[in-house]
Design a protein around this nucleic acid. Structure first.
Length: 211
DNA sequence: ACATTAAGTGATT
DNA sequence: AATCACTTAATGT
């Protein structure tokens, strides 16, 4: 079961021996939409390898202010977990399933092992770090330099790519939380986008026309 | 029919 | 861009 799933996406990435090991120690988990995978402060004793679906990674500061950083998709792993896996530190981010997803959990003890044993694993981890760093930089740019209207539009188009659907099932309030702004602002800016024929608005639903 | 939740809007800071 | 205060619209019970 795990082997088939693994072969779907990781056959070309990992050498066969590594696949064997993952099959041995990994556990497949199906995650339902909106399920909390990892919360801030959680210890991780295992790291997820995404098979399909999407996980939203966000950050929260004390008072409840939240901001979305990026999404994990097939082939991704939560690299932030890696760095501190060995010193058993706590998560600084939150991961919530954006849609039904499947992941393989791998116990952290194996990570170090595999780093020395398998080149493909090293490459995977390094690549993955790189991708994550770039996404983080993009998130910083977005936050620092983009105005709310641009951020909103980026949010919508990004989400279309991730969900692979042009119709997003969400509310203005939820978007406001993800962007750490107010519902009223989101409603107004969405209206503008609609007037520019970039989107179409419905209750609990937004159709993205241009992306 | 009524209550609840989502979305729209003018005015103010 | 945020907040308030209010309206209108859609949906659930």
């Amino acid at each position: 079961m795990i082997r088939e799933k693994l072969n779907e996406f990781y056959k070309v990435v990992f050498e066969p021996e590594l696949i064997d090991e993952i099959v041995e120690v990994g556990s497949l988990k199906k995650i339902k939409e909106n399920e909390l995978l990892l919360d801030i402060g959680d210890n991780f004793n295992r790291i997820p390898l995404m098979l399909n679906g999407a996980i939203k990674i966000s950050r929260e500061i004390n008072n409840g202010d939240e901001i979305v950083l990026y999404f994990l998709e097939r082939g991704d792993t939560c690299t932030i977990s890696f760095g501190s896996g060995l010193n058993a530190s706590k998560s600084k981010v939150r991961g919530v399933a954006e849609k039904d997803s499947e992941v393989i959990f791998i116990p952290v003890e194996k990570l170090e092992d595999w780093m020395v044993k398998y080149k493909s694993w090293r490459d995977f981890v390094i690549d993955s770090y790189n991708i994550r760093l770039n996404e983080m930089l993009e998130a910083i740019d977005t936050l620092a330099f983009m105005k709310m209207d641009q951020r909103l539009y980026k949010y919508l188009t990004d989400k279309v790519k991730i969900m692979r659907e042009t119709t997003l099932k969400t509310t203005h309030q939820e978007i406001a939380i993800d962007l750490n702004t107010s519902r009223v602002v989101v409603s107004r800016l969405l209206k503008q986008l609609e007037n520019q024929s970039k989107i179409k608005l419905f209750r609990n639903r937004i159709e993205v026309l241009e992306y």
